[in-house]
Design a protein around this nucleic acid. Structure first.
Lengths: 299, 299
DNA sequence: CTGAAAGCGCTAACAC
DNA sequence: GTGTTAGCGCTTTCAG
């Protein structure tokens, strides 16, 4: 009865009272025993790339967790990349049935994960990877559409963001190639106004008229550098960010950026997880994220 | 031997070969079986307050995870507050032996957690709560030390941040009372330049000369509003933020803020968890966080 | 349709 | 000092 097996004949009164008792004691089956017996744990482990934690990812995780909960699955997250337990260790410890990741998991780890007790591995690799690329593509396209012919790229400071950054950069490069213009000139950045001022001048010297920033934080930081260098956006240098963080709206000038539907993304990922659990192909539905540009005054 | 029981006599060669084989297969005991048998899971569940995810918390979590890993414990995190699984559900699902939380856990939940299979509950309630308060205190003290006699408080937009905000606000109010000046005048905020411009003017009208912001994001947003209202910091209104996010350095003017040692905090919390596991009192050592003000141009 | 029993993968406590 | 076994709390399967 507790498992709600269909086709039973329990007096309504009794049923109610038992359920009531359960609620009162708020009994919960012990996860370890449950998964040991059932051979499947209903625990989903999400690996979040180190340091890139921000409000956007928060919204995504929330939706992901909520959708999973609807399917009776429990989400826990793990901060990847940092020192400490590696993903396979954590996976084994919580006996996760599915591992989801926002950034590509290397083959070696993936193999370990898969081997680890029938644990199914699932990554967004298939779709999210292109999405990162697509974001870069959109940034550049937007700028090119505005008439810019020489584009800069502002890399993130932290090297652990490099994998994602490379993807986004590739998208920019792609768009430039497609438009038949020079490849983007990439420069490293830092959360330091003086450094960013120097970068801005450097781009100007190289005849760059617009730059795609790795994300909004980098873009805002560049805006600060420009102010210091007595340069204005978008006249001297047009700037486009990525991720649409809340602060982008109050940047000076307000920052153009690339947004995408994180709630939808969370929902799709959850669907994919559920599907993979019932033997389906672990794949997220294509029209999931719909990245799009938000045009504000900085471009 | 795999458990490294002391006092054995295994030929060195054999030992080496077995260990080698283990590494090759990279075998990992299944967590569920392990904890079921041992009655203890070595999984630590960290509950992170909904939405307040930011770079600072990332650094904290990393250090926490690393320190726990040193003690052979595995950390997973859960986003609290959001719809989806509640903390006790997640706790039961992963069979956590310790639950740590950044914000106070209500008594009801705590009781459930504690009951749930000998799971020990641990919260930072004891110490972190005061720390939030202390941050507000420091903000106000700093401003008062600079000669300000009427102080404003900028509340966060999101109501789920309210609990933390109330604590921080209380610290500000405390400091004001101690200094014998008027209580802080609190205003709601939004990531919208126009709204913030209005708030700035409102504070001026109320003779406020300095405002403590809930955090750096709110502060930066207020700075944007002031620019719009043709007000300058710190002359027209001195601003102090909290948390010391990277963007605080590139704010215009650079933002004074309250920082604290997140790495140390992570380490202390881990120590406390380990202690609580060996029967000690779940308490984090007092001199753990050392919040301090970083004085920049905005005040 | 309901009850009893086997056993999931490990650890701990026990005899040898 | 080493091998063996009982059993952790559940699910599932298989008789009744």
């Amino acid at each position: 009865m507790l498992n709600d097996t269909p086709g039973q004949s329990i007096p309504e009164e009794t049923r109610r009272r038992v359920l009531e008792a359960v609620r009162q004691l708020d009994y919960r089956p012990r996860g370890s025993a449950r998964s040991l017996a059932a051979g499947r744990s209903d625990v989903i482990l999400l690996s979040i790339p180190h340091l890139s934690i921000g409000p956007s990812i928060g919204r995504f995780v929330e939706q992901f967790a909520a959708s999973l909960a609807d399917a009776g699955l429990t989400l826990v997250t793990h901060l990847a990349g940092a020192p400490g337990q590696a993903l396979p260790d954590v996976c084994a410890a919580v006996d996760a049935s599915v591992v989801a990741s926002l950034e590509p998991i290397d083959d070696d780890t993936a193999r370990t994960l898969r081997r680890a007790g029938a644990t199914i591995v699932f990554t967004t690799e298939v779709e999210a990877h292109p999405t990162m690329r697509q974001m870069g593509h959109l940034q550049a396209e937007h700028l090119i559409g505005l008439g810019h012919r020489r584009i800069g790229y502002a890399m993130p400071e932290h090297k652990l963001l490099r994998k994602i950054a490379d993807d986004r950069f590739l998208g920019v490069a792609d768009a430039c190639a497609q438009a038949g213009i020079d490849p983007p000139v990439a420069l490293d950045t830092k959360f330091d106004t003086a450094v960013m001022a120097r970068a801005a001048r450097r781009w100007r010297r190289e005849s760059v008229t617009a730059v795609c920033a790795y994300n909004d934080e980098v873009a805002i930081s560049l805006l600060a550098g420009m102010r210091r260098a007595k340069l204005t956006a978008p006249e001297d240098l047009a700037i486009v960010g990525a991720d649409d963080i809340p602060l982008a709206q109050v940047a000076d000038p307000p920052l153009s950026t690339i947004a995408f539907d994180l709630e939808k993304m969370g929902r799709s990922l959850a669907e994919a997880v559920v599907a993979s659990l019932s033997g389906g192909r672990p794949r997220v539905s294509p029209p999931a994220f719909q990245p799009h540009v938000i045009h504000r005054a900085s471009t």
